[in-house]
Simulated scan of single mutants.
Amino acid sequence: MNKVRYWAVVPAAGVGRRMNVDIPKQYLEIKGKPLIEHTLGRLLDFPHLERIVVVLDREDEYHQSIELMRNARIQLAEGGDERYHSVLSGLRVLLDMADPNDWVLVHDVARPCIRRSDLDWLVNQLHEHPVGGLLGSPVTDTIKKAGSDDVVSETVDRQGLWHAMTPQMFRLGMLHDAMAKAIADKMPVTDEASAIEYSGKQPVMVEGHADNIKVTRGTDLALASLYIEQQSKLIEVS
């Protein structure tokens, strides 16, 4: 029996409209280098990954100036109109080089603070699981539900609620088929786990650190910079 291997897909074809900037947010700088370089550097430092498929917009020219993108373990693929199209494109590339039973970790390019310890923990917790799962953090805030007029209709019980993060780790063949079916059925696929759920399977939540934030707005850049600096100090101490 062949050894199960690990691969990654990083959808990076978005344009970051909510950032109100002229370039895609993955190329904005954090501590002197592009966000995407931080994210890919974290993944490249994770030795379990055979290869990382980075899915870019077909007209993306910014990546050409980033030396890290020429790393032998990085392969480029062309993205689609929505994130889920880009993920499916990356999965199709992997099917040409990987076994359907291999694991694939899908990670947001806009999460540059992912910790090595969380990657280790995710793989440790899921490597023998029949389905897979995702990093997340339990909801600790009070959650309100409001209508279209922003008037609160109820306070939601937070017991069992999680903030979903990435990476999300599933068997390559299973995830490919689940994503393809959900897209064909025009189901809203906000993350990989939702496609797996739609296929009738149940992913596992794996608790990770809350500093694995997604850079969505301008203020998130400063917060990500702070977290990266704090994490580097932790490494120096250890």
Rank of each mutant, 00 (worst) to 15 (best):
I74F: 09
N20W: 07
N101R: 15
V4P: 03
E78R: 05
A98S: 15
V206P: 04
V15C: 03
I66M: 02
I196P: 08
N212P: 06
R217K: 11
V106C: 04
K144F: 13
A222F: 07
W121S: 07
D211E: 12
G136Y: 04
I74W: 03
V10C: 11
S153F: 02
L56Y: 02
A77T: 01
P11S: 07
L56T: 00
D108T: 11
H176V: 08
S153K: 08
E61M: 00
D60H: 01
I30S: 05
L68N: 03
G133A: 08
R42W: 09
D220L: 12
H127S: 11
T190W: 15
P188S: 10
D191E: 13
R111W: 03
H163V: 08
L44D: 01
V204I: 10
Y227K: 13
A193D: 09
D150G: 04
G90F: 05
P130Q: 14
V55E: 01
P167V: 13
T216M: 07
L76P: 02
V21N: 05
D157Q: 00
V54T: 08
S117E: 13
V131N: 15
A195K: 15
M69D: 00
R83I: 12
D118E: 05
P138N: 08
L135G: 14
Y227A: 09
A13G: 09
L35V: 13
T39K: 14
E154L: 05
H176Y: 15
R111H: 03
Y198L: 08
K201L: 14
N212C: 13
I213L: 14
I183S: 02
D22P: 00
V4D: 05
L94H: 15
Q168D: 14
T155A: 00
S194L: 11
W103R: 09
Y62S: 02
M169Y: 10
R70P: 03
S117I: 06
M179L: 15
L135E: 13
C113T: 13
V10T: 02
D22C: 01
I213K: 04
V204M: 10
